[in-house]
């Protein structure tokens, strides 16, 4: 029974993979930006976008695509090639890539699919389109050097377990190294009560 899911993957792919232009995209060609692909090519990780010939190996081998009816790496690549900029950068599905790199390793054209998707996420982030969880992780990094705030109970528990004290980042030195990167822009709209946002399960 479990094995069936593997053989059914092609069927799932066919159902979910067509790119249908929405009403507004059909009505206003300005929503399609033919120059967009050149922007992607210039973002680190986006360089191989142009080599994709839409074979679909990425989607058929993607663990997330097996359980999502929205996430299709091949479609994301095609949308980027076509210039459906807002459709890609505004989407929730862009953030569903698990970064397992199966697509990158198996692409017969050498497209670094996961890196292209990361480049698209970086572009979305530059425009402030960022899931809340990432803002909290970045906020923690700026404060402590790590993406989680280690709870006091954990630090005490280390003593009981006879583990050495945790490394403590020299935050001042870290801040100096990061000062020219303008990463604070990503924090806009950081939720006040970070405990309400799930950063991990």
């Amino acid at each position: 029974m479990l094995h069936e899911k593997y053989t059914n993957k092609d069927a799932i792919m066919e159902e979910g993979e067509g790119i249908i232009l929405s009403g507004s995209e059909k009505a206003s060609p300005s929503r399609v930006n033919p120059k967009f692909k050149y922007e992607v090519l210039r973002v680190p990780g986006g360089e191989s976008l142009i080599h994709c010939f839409q074979c679909g190996t990425c989607t058929s081998d993607c663990p997330v695509a097996r359980f999502s009816d929205k996430y299709r790496p091949r479609s994301i690549i095609r949308m980027a090639q076509l210039g459906l900029k807002d459709r890609v950068l505004d989407s929730d599905f862009l953030w569903l890539c698990a970064s397992c790199f199966t697509c990158t390793d198996r692409c017969p054209q050498g497209v670094e699919v996961a890196s292209v998707i990361r480049a698209l996420k970086n572009m979305a982030a530059m425009e402030g389109r960022i899931p809340q969880a990432f803002k909290i992780l970045l906020g923690n990094l700026i404060k402590t050097g790590y993406i989680y705030e280690i709870p006091e109970s954990r630090i005490k528990r280390r003593e009981t377990l006879q583990l050495p004290p945790l490394p403590k980042t020299n935050v001042e030195s870290l801040t100096k190294s990061l000062q020219n990167l303008d990463i604070k822009r990503f924090l806009e709209g950081l939720p006040q009560k970070s405990s309400e946002v799930r950063v991990w399960v």
Binding site: V43, P44, G45, W95, S99, R118, A119, K121, N122, A125, I130, F134, L137, L138, L141, G145, Y146, I147, P167, K168, T169, N170, S173, L174, L178, L181, I183, F186
Partner: peptide
């Protein structure tokens, strides 16, 4: 003592970071 996050979880925001 001075290590910091490796950066992987934030690669979605900024590759350079």
């Amino acid at each position: 003592p001075e290590f910091n996050c490796c950066g992987l979880p934030l690669e979605s925001l900024s590759h350079k970071l």
